[in-house]
Simulated assay, not measured.
Amino acid sequence: MTISMYQASIPVSIRTLNNLVSILEKGATYAETKKIDPSVLINSRLSPDMFPLSKQVQIASDIVNRGAARLAGIEPTQFEDNETTFPQLIDRIHQTISGLNTFKPEQIDGSEERTITLKLGDKTIDFQGMPFLLSFVLPNLYFHVTTAYDILRHCGVELGKQDFLGQP
């Protein structure tokens, strides 16, 4: 049995983003229950030189949104990166999932060797589709979702491994 580029990208990204929504909902509930200003959690970071929770969520959203569009050979939807509340962050993830749900397998499948050029700062990096997905998009998605999880866990939100993995 083989796995297609679509199967390796879209359903996996949607599942991970849905898990992130659940993690954020637990963060919002924790803030409300403990009477903590939600902005404290949203602006928390693991280290002074790391991005806060809000940016971790925005990057997770952007990486799969832009990744899927590049694999499909189309322009990605742009987000403003102006979310400051849990409901806004959750809504952004829902918008990203809605966008991912519009992709059809035939748009993504066959992109294994498509040349994808990224401008990262002052560098330009060329990828072929499969390495782009497997060594750039998915690792970045997992990194930023894990970091969002870790920030909330560090702040005291009761999260466990199953929150990250989701239900089978």
Results as ranks from 00 to 15, higher is better:
residue 57 V to D: 03
residue 91 D to R: 13
residue 8 A to V: 06
residue 139 P to F: 12
residue 10 I to C: 08
residue 34 K to Y: 11
residue 97 I to G: 05
residue 151 I to K: 01
residue 68 A to W: 00
residue 57 V to N: 02
residue 21 V to R: 01
residue 129 G to H: 10
residue 9 S to A: 07
residue 26 K to T: 02
residue 121 G to H: 10
residue 138 L to H: 13
residue 56 Q to K: 03
residue 42 I to T: 02
residue 88 Q to L: 02
residue 108 I to T: 05
residue 132 F to D: 05
residue 35 K to F: 09
residue 30 Y to N: 02
residue 12 V to Q: 08
residue 125 I to G: 11
residue 57 V to S: 03
residue 75 E to H: 10
residue 127 F to H: 04
residue 54 S to H: 03
residue 109 D to N: 15
residue 41 L to I: 05
residue 150 D to S: 14
residue 137 V to A: 09
residue 16 T to N: 06
residue 127 F to C: 07
residue 118 L to D: 07
residue 37 D to V: 04
residue 113 E to P: 06
residue 110 G to C: 08
residue 156 G to N: 11
residue 22 S to Y: 06
residue 16 T to A: 15
residue 64 V to D: 03
residue 33 T to M: 02
residue 144 H to Y: 01
residue 160 G to D: 13
residue 66 R to H: 13
residue 65 N to E: 10
residue 37 D to C: 06
residue 91 D to Q: 14
residue 110 G to K: 10
residue 120 L to V: 15
residue 13 S to E: 11
residue 116 I to E: 07
residue 57 V to R: 00
residue 167 Q to D: 12
residue 94 H to I: 07
residue 7 Q to K: 13
residue 122 D to N: 12
residue 164 F to M: 14
residue 8 A to T: 12
residue 27 G to T: 03
residue 48 P to C: 09
residue 80 E to F: 09
residue 104 K to T: 15
residue 27 G to L: 00
residue 55 K to G: 12
residue 44 S to C: 10
residue 32 E to M: 01
residue 72 A to C: 05
residue 131 P to M: 05
residue 127 F to V: 07
residue 122 D to C: 01
residue 21 V to Y: 02
residue 121 G to W: 01
residue 120 L to W: 14
residue 36 I to G: 00
residue 71 L to S: 02
residue 21 V to N: 06
residue 104 K to P: 04
residue 126 D to I: 07
residue 32 E to S: 12
residue 104 K to W: 07
residue 132 F to A: 07
residue 70 R to T: 08
residue 63 I to P: 02
residue 147 T to M: 12
residue 136 F to E: 00
residue 147 T to C: 06
residue 65 N to Y: 08
residue 113 E to F: 10
residue 157 V to K: 01
residue 115 T to K: 13
residue 149 Y to G: 05
residue 149 Y to V: 04
residue 49 D to Y: 12
residue 65 N to F: 05
residue 83 E to R: 08
residue 40 V to N: 02
residue 36 I to Y: 05
residue 118 L to N: 10
residue 32 E to A: 10
residue 65 N to H: 09
residue 21 V to W: 00
residue 45 R to T: 13
residue 150 D to Y: 09
residue 49 D to Q: 15
residue 113 E to T: 12
residue 46 L to I: 14
residue 95 Q to E: 13
residue 14 I to G: 03
residue 159 L to I: 05
residue 71 L to W: 03
residue 69 A to M: 08
residue 124 T to V: 14
residue 18 N to E: 15
residue 91 D to K: 14
residue 119 K to T: 15
residue 26 K to L: 00
residue 15 R to W: 08
residue 9 S to D: 00
residue 125 I to F: 11
residue 2 T to W: 07
residue 155 C to V: 05
residue 73 G to V: 03
residue 11 P to Y: 02
residue 73 G to T: 04
residue 61 S to H: 06
residue 148 A to M: 01
residue 164 F to T: 04
residue 20 L to W: 01
residue 1 M to Y: 13
residue 114 R to S: 03
residue 121 G to V: 01
residue 42 I to F: 00
residue 18 N to V: 05
residue 115 T to Y: 08
residue 88 Q to A: 14
residue 55 K to S: 15
residue 16 T to V: 13
residue 158 E to S: 09
residue 35 K to Y: 07
residue 10 I to P: 01
residue 2 T to K: 12
residue 14 I to N: 01
residue 162 Q to E: 15
residue 39 S to E: 14
residue 79 F to D: 02
residue 161 K to M: 13
residue 121 G to T: 10
residue 167 Q to P: 08
residue 136 F to L: 13
residue 108 I to Y: 01
